[in-house]
Computed example of a mutant assay.
Amino acid sequence: MTVKIDTYYDFRSPYAYFADYRARNADFGLAVEVEWVGRPIFIDVILNLQSGREPWAPYVDTLIPPKRAYLMADIRRMARFYGAPYKPSWKWPNRPNQIPALCIASLLSGRAEEVFRSAIFDGLWHEQRDISDPAVLREAVARAGGDPAVVEQAADPGVRDALTRRTVEAYANGVFGTPTFVWNGEIFFGADRLEVLAWKVNRAADE
């Protein structure tokens, strides 16, 4: 039995990276085979929609200093807790542009999308690679068994527009951040909800 779980992610979320790492490496109690169906989204679009702004309005940082300090400490703590390699080469908040990688991911499917997704997460969060570099993107696509020409295809403005529409649709359906997992119409938010998701999936499999 294989269960499909929609997996909404963006690359710049450390918690989405932790979730991807856990899905690949951790045993959190799933008793069935799972296909993690990748659903890349633009987190900036989600944040703008939450604040009543247009999807691509200029980014506004709403984190107060105490919350940002907590976030930085929590990321390091959770990396150690999950055993996930964590050694980015950039300083917050100046992360590499993730839009090209998300657009490429939106054009891939199945195993190719899954392998590409993990390659980009690893490149950004601990391999110290520039995920906005076309050469890095082509290498990740090739590793995933895809056609490197998809890197140029993803630069078409229509690809970003389509992904924006899918992000708006995801928000309308209850997705408010990343990582978000949707199974059987139920939403699970955060890398720390994978055990709860596994519990629900296993209960349904036993019925």
Rank of each mutant, 00 (worst) to 15 (best):
S13G: 10
S13Q: 00
P14G: 04
P14C: 10
Y15D: 00
Y15T: 01
Y15E: 06
Y15Q: 04
A16R: 04
A16I: 09
Y17S: 04
F18R: 00
D20Q: 14
Y21C: 05
R24N: 13
N25W: 09
A26V: 08
D27G: 07
F28V: 14
G29Q: 07
G29A: 09
A31Y: 08
A31T: 13
V32R: 14
E33S: 11
V34K: 01
V34T: 04
W36Y: 12
W36G: 04
V37P: 01
G38I: 00
G38N: 03
G38V: 05
G38Q: 03
G38M: 09
R39M: 07
I41T: 03
I43A: 01
D44S: 13
D44E: 14
D44I: 01
D44C: 06
V45N: 02
I46T: 10
N48P: 03
L49G: 09
L49C: 09
Q50C: 11
Q50P: 03
Q50S: 06
Q50T: 09
Q50R: 13
G52C: 12
G52Q: 02
R53D: 08
P55D: 05
W56M: 13
W56N: 10
W56Y: 07
W56R: 15
W56I: 09
W56D: 13
W56Q: 12
A57M: 07
A57F: 02
A57Q: 06
P58V: 13
Y59R: 11
V60I: 15
D61P: 02
T62Y: 01
P66K: 10
R68A: 14
Y70I: 08
L71P: 02
L71F: 11
L71G: 14
M72F: 05
M72Q: 12
A73V: 00
A73W: 01
A73S: 11
A73N: 11
D74A: 08
D74H: 14
D74K: 08
R77H: 15
A79I: 07
A79H: 02
A79G: 13
R80A: 15
R80Y: 11
R80C: 05
R80D: 14
F81K: 13
F81R: 15
G83A: 09
G83C: 10
A84P: 00
A84F: 05
P85L: 12
Y86L: 15
K87D: 14
K87A: 15
K87M: 06
K87N: 15
K87G: 12
S89V: 10
W90I: 10
K91S: 15
K91E: 15
W92K: 03
W92Y: 14
P93D: 08
P93T: 06
R95C: 03
R95G: 04
P96V: 10
N97H: 11
Q98F: 01
I99R: 02
I99L: 09
P100A: 03
P100N: 03
P100W: 04
A101C: 08
L102M: 11
L102H: 00
L102I: 04
C103I: 03
A105E: 05
S106P: 02
S106C: 10
L107W: 01
L107V: 07
L108M: 02
G110F: 06
G110L: 04
